[in-house]
Amino acid sequence: MNPYVTEARRWIGTPYLHQADTRSAGTDCLGLVRGVWRHVLGAEPETVPPYTADWSEPSGDEVLWRAARRWLVPQADLIPRTGDVLLFRMRANSVAKHLGIFSGEARFIHAYTGHGVIESPLSTPWASRLVARFAFPERI
């Protein structure tokens, strides 16, 4: 089993809490990816500054996408592989601001407002929002 998926599944049921990153207590989508990173790879490579729920939509600044490119390994296509971090744009012409971890079999694990950490089908509506795919690094 993929270690990133195994750890992400341990977070299922964690309530949604903006800017949080603690399994069972609360997390958002970035906190889930950070928590999985810490469990599998060790210490995070940088401190995450405070961020708003709109992820800089008014300015159009792709803050989350830039951070993902800094620490994760960009993949050339949008065909997910087990353990990949998926980046989504929630609305057309807005910044990418949602992350999930592909768990295989056309499913992904993510922390979603009002639902907490869940495993969802990578359905057509979700797949149409996918804008980038990243692998976790071997080690930092």
Score class of each variant (00 low, 15 high):
His39Glu: 14
Val85Ser: 07
His98Asp: 09
Pro50Tyr: 15
Arg66Gly: 07
Gly13Tyr: 13
Val40Thr: 05
Arg107Lys: 14
Pro3Ile: 00
Pro80Val: 11
Gly104Ile: 07
Val117Leu: 11
Gly60Ile: 10
Ala92Asp: 14
Ala20Gly: 01
Arg38Ser: 11
Val73Tyr: 08
Thr27Ala: 15
Arg91Met: 03
Glu46Tyr: 13
Arg139Gln: 13
Ile109Met: 10
Glu7Arg: 12
Glu138Pro: 05
Leu86Val: 03
Leu32Arg: 04
Leu30Lys: 05
Gly116Ser: 04
Trp55Phe: 13
Asn93Tyr: 15
Ser59Ile: 02
Leu17Ser: 02
His98Met: 13
Glu62Asp: 05
Asn2Ser: 14
Ile109Phe: 15
Arg10Ser: 13
Ala8Lys: 00
Gly100Asp: 07
Leu41Ala: 03
Gly60Cys: 09
Arg133Ala: 05
Pro58Ala: 08
Arg9Gly: 08
Glu105Ser: 12
Trp11Ser: 02
Pro125Trp: 05
Gly104Tyr: 10
Leu87Ser: 12
Trp65Arg: 11
Arg70Glu: 03
Val5Glu: 04
Arg38Phe: 06
Trp65Ser: 06
Asn93Ile: 05
Thr82Asn: 08
Arg133Ser: 03
Ser103Lys: 09
Asn93Asp: 15
Val131Thr: 13
Thr47Pro: 01
Asn93Gly: 11
Ser56Cys: 13
Ile79His: 08
Glu44Ala: 01
Thr124Ala: 15
Gly35Met: 04
Glu138Val: 12
Val131Leu: 12
Gly60Asn: 09
Val5Thr: 12
His110Gln: 13
Arg91His: 07
Thr14Glu: 14
Glu7Leu: 02
Cys29Gln: 06
Gly60Arg: 09
Ala8Trp: 01
Ala111Phe: 15
Arg10Trp: 11
Arg91Glu: 06
Gly114Tyr: 11
Glu138Asn: 05
Glu57Asn: 13
Ala8Val: 01
Arg66Met: 09
Leu72Trp: 13
Thr47Lys: 02
Asn2Pro: 05
Asn2Lys: 07
Gly104Val: 07
Phe102Lys: 10
Pro50Phe: 12
Pro45Lys: 07
Leu72Thr: 01
Arg69Pro: 01
Ser123Arg: 02
Arg139Tyr: 11
Val48Phe: 10
Thr6Glu: 14
